[in-house]
């Protein structure tokens, strides 16, 4: 089980969290202006790297806040976490 550092509560067991997938995916400012392919990319394509990955977690059974984690998907090593709105 992962030990995930919540930026507010500190390290807690993975079962306290919900996963949110890739971080920093912005809602398109003008969705109607996108082509079908661009809209499909926004809806369905997410990065899936083997290695460092910036991802979102929610401390669902704790402070209930969303934040970001840089984690290696090949080793599960967690490099660091940072608050929503911050950049690594």
């Amino acid at each position: 089980m992962l030990l995930i550092p919540c930026p507010w509560c500190g390290p807690r067991a993975e079962i306290e969290y919900r996963y949110g997938g890739q971080a920093h995916v912005a809602y398109p400012p003008e969705p109607a202006a996108l082509t079908d392919a661009e809209w499909a990319a926004y809806l369905f394509l997410r990065d899936n790297p083997k290695g460092p990955f910036a991802e979102r977690w929610c401390h669902a059974a704790g402070c209930r806040r969303w934040f970001n984690v840089l984690r290696d998907t090949a080793t599960h090593e967690i490099h660091f976490s940072y608050r929503a709105g911050e950049r690594p």
Binding site: L2, I15, G21, E55
Partner: peptide
């Protein structure tokens, strides 16, 4: 397991 991974292992929970 909920998260993305290439590690061929998951959590015991």
């Amino acid at each position: 397991d909920s998260y993305n991974s290439y590690a061929q292992r998951g959590g015991f929970h």
